[in-house]
């Protein structure tokens, strides 16, 4: 554990303390929110990372390539949607998952689809959206999202050069 990596974090804590001294209401509220979010993170992340560790150790690269790799076709797309939609936790917890998928040889666009699904088509979230904003609002957005997630995933992959994609995979395999 190197302290240097925590430099930004330490600076932000100092900033928060400064704000607290300058305006106690805003400072206290922000600390309270941070604490609440920290508890949420602490409760969600252990099982996510344990599952990731197990996935990393047990799932063979060939298996991942077969189901989510370059030649996986529609299976890979559906699997990516399922993985993201069945997940729990905030979007930032999805990035380590994306890292392991890349490391195991999943196609880049499928990883982006997983990210998109994680951010918007999570099943409990959809049900909650319908109950707060109405079924029609939810259905219109869901239909749009399903198209948008795929479009954004392929667009992002297309915008990257071979070398850039290569370095994303290299970065992932070094983790």
């Amino acid at each position: 554990m190197k302290v240097k990596r925590y430099r930004v974090f330490i600076l932000l804590v100092a900033l928060n303390i400064a704000i607290f001294l300058f305006s106690p209401t805003v400072g206290a509220k922000s600390l309270q929110l941070t604490w609440k979010n920290l508890l949420e993170m602490a409760s969600i992340l252990p099982p996510v990372f344990i599952l990731l560790g197990l996935l990393d150790v047990w799932v063979k690269r060939e298996t991942m390539v077969k189901y989510m790799g370059d030649g996986s076709g529609i299976t890979g797309v559906l699997l990516a949607f399922f993985l993201g939609s069945a997940a729990a936790g905030p979007l930032y917890a999805a990035f380590p998952v994306a890292g392991v998928l890349l490391k195991k040889g999943s196609k880049l666009s499928n990883v982006f689809i997983m990210l998109g699904a994680w951010s918007t088509t999570k099943i409990p979230l959809i049900l909650f959206e319908a109950s707060s904003l109405g079924l029609k609002f939810m259905l219109v957005r869901l239909a749009m999202d399903l198209i948008g997630i795929v479009v954004i995933a392929y667009l992002t992959q297309r915008m990257l050069s071979k070398e850039e994609i290569e370095s994303i995979y290299q970065n992932a395999s070094g983790r």
Partner: peptide, 26 residues
């Protein structure tokens, strides 16, 4: 090994996670 990997990847990204939490709070 899986648990070791889990901890390593968690500790790798922990500084960024903590920073994000404070920014969201602010």
């Amino acid at each position: 090994l899986a648990l070791k990997k889990a901890w390593k990847s968690f500790e790798n990204i922990l500084p960024q996670f903590l920073s994000i939490l404070i920014i969201i709070g602010l």
